[in-house]
Amino acid sequence: MNWYAVKSIYTFEMARTWRTVLQSVIAPVISTALYFVVFGSAIGSRMTDIDGIGYGSFIVPGLVMLSLLTQSVSNAAFGIYFPRFSGTIFEVLSAPISYIEILLGYVGAAATKSILLGLIILATATLFVELRIAHPIWMLMFLVLTAVTFSLLGFIIGIWADSFEKLQIVPLLIVTPLTFLGGSFYSIDMLPPVWQTITLFNPVVYLVSGFRWSFFEISDVAVGISLGMTAVFMIICLSIVWWIFKTGYRLKN
């Protein structure tokens, strides 16, 4: 393993986060705080409890997931797309590093950023609502697993995109709607039966459900299924990344 290379890519990407701290950290924290104010305090105070959990607290896992998913995808997509756009990718491709090492550097940095952000948002949430975490280890596991999986998705998007517009299409038009419709702000039990069935095709439902279970021990689907679906999604992403590296798709042609 070329650990120096992994460290170089990782620290380079992390340095970009600190250089753009307003955009990378403060902006998502502020927008999440606004969600808490609007949905948690203003609207939430008029909502009934869900499974015995106050609405403000109920939406915390969903809001963390919302940020985690969008930031994982955006960070990883931009991280690999920008060197492609600027041409500096030549250096990575000509270096004595394997594809696994490239992936560890870029996806590792993107996942780290979004996990840190998720934890900051959790800390911010405690300023607005009462929060307890029933299974902190499981919570961290879901956090890491989701961050890595969606960073892999972001990496794929960053390779596929050939314009800044395309870079934004998937996060804006697919990931964000799926997250909003994935039970971030409600329990899927609250939906009509037909929509409950349709919602089960949304992978984000399983992430939010499993993550929420680690907080409140309530879930829309069984925890094992949540974990399994996340693992399946990760395997799909890894398979696509493997194919990209094998064929050199948009990297070496």
Binding site: Y4, A5, S8, F12, V92, I97
Partner: peptide, 18 residues
């Protein structure tokens, strides 16, 4: 890397090559 310093970008390259 337009936003990087000369020192950092050179150090990055060295690490990249192991």
């Amino acid at each position: 890397d337009a936003f990087e310093t000369v020192w950092n970008t050179t150090r990055f390259s060295r690490g990249l090559f192991g």
